[in-house]
């Protein structure tokens, strides 16, 4: 009798265990559930509204009215020169931003890694641009780049020896053909510090002896960089290329403050274009449609980065 009772107790214990046993994946899902629910609640309505809006013609004359136009807004965007111009500007702005952010970040990381004295102070100075709001950064860069009091005017006048008010000319970087690159530089200036600190963490993991091995193997400076310094940075470089790419594509405030898409629409990225369409021209439908093209561009380029680069890193 006793043994049967024991068996029953054991059996029940086993069942109880079975009931609460979760796989790692299930446990992870459980942990993520609240935030997923929250995101769905917060995202679903604006997303749904934007989809609806992108298929409406919105008019304000004679009261707010909307009429269903199907994919007309999407079609209109594709036939618009302005749209394609903005795509071009966005691609240029994002490419230059990402390349500069990664290069400056890597440079700063190597600098911080090498410097021995005053390291804390250097780190503080380097992180400052990142801690600045993009709006504030926009104001500052605009001050630097504009005519009259801007750095560009001052430098050109100084180089040509025009030091009196009547000889000085006004040269504004803001209204030059370099405006997109200049915006990208400002954006990279803001993003690079974060990249630098993450890369620095990677650099710290490289055994010093590996540099000695490279010396015994007679590697030149470039080979040493490729074979010793770069390999442990690859994953961080990929992650931050993706992050800076996405951040740059959806950037508005900095551009809005610094160049306002100008001169003309020389620096009108997709974000600026759709902001302009919606809140200045009240063309909500077209703006919403373009916002989805931007979303596709973001998702598409992030996936492409993963496909051509990130995927290959996983086995190392």
């Amino acid at each position: 009798m006793a043994s049967r009772a024991e068996a029953r107790i054991q059996n029940e214990a086993k069942l109880a265990l079975k009931r609460i046993e979760l796989s790692n994946r299930q446990f992870a899902m459980l942990l993520a559930l609240p935030v997923i629910l929250f995101l769905v609640m917060v995202m679903a309505y604006p997303m749904g509204y934007a989809i609806w809006l992108s298929m409406q013609e919105v008019s304000f004359f004679g009261g707010f009215r909307t009429s269903f136009v199907g994919i007309e807004n999407y079609r209109e965007a594709l036939y618009s020169d302005n749209f394609w111009w903005s795509v071009r500007v966005t691609v240029q702005f994002v490419s230059v931003s990402v390349v500069l952010a990664m290069l400056i970040g890597l440079g700063l990381a190597l600098l911080m890694h090498r410097v021995r004295r005053g390291r804390a102070l250097l780190g503080t100075i380097i992180i400052l641009p990142w801690s600045m709001s993009l709006y504030g950064a926009g104001v500052m860069w605009q001050y630097l780049a504009r005519g009259q009091s801007g750095v560009a005017s001052s430098l050109i006048n100084r180089m040509l020896g025009r030091t009196t008010p009547d000889t000085a000319v006004e040269y504004s970087l803001i209204s030059s053909e370099q405006i997109v690159n200049l915006l990208a530089l400002g954006n990279a200036w803001n993003l690079a510090p974060l990249v630098a600190f993450f890369l620095l963490a990677n650099l710290k993991t490289i055994p010093e002896r590996l540099y000695d091995l490279a010396r015994v193997d007679r590697l030149n400076i470039w080979q040493r960089f490729l074979n010793v310094t770069l390999p442990p940075l690859q994953y961080t470089l990929f992650v931050f290329t993706t992050i800076t790419l996405i951040l740059s594509m959806k950037l508005l405030d900095f551009i809005f403050v610094m160049s306002a898409g100008g001169p003309g629409d020389a620096s009108a990225t997709l974000t600026f274009r759709l902001f302009d369409l919606a809140f200045r021209q009240s063309n909500y439908g077209l703006s919403a449609a373009i916002s989805f093209y931007l979303l596709f561009l973001i998702i598409g380029s992030a996936l492409a980065l993963f496909f051509f680069w990130g995927r290959r890193l996983e086995d190392t």
């Binding site: 055994p207 590996l210 000695d212 193997d217 007679r218 030149n220 074979n227």
Partner: peptide, 25 residues
């Protein structure tokens, strides 16, 4: 030729590439 502590090798290279590195330059 030097052998380092923990038999240090270039972590991202295969064994053969590591050995080749000795003669590369």
């Amino acid at each position: 030729a030097m052998v380092f502590q923990s038999s240090l090798l270039y972590p991202h290279l295969t064994a053969l590439q590591n050995v080749r590195m000795s003669l590369k330059n």
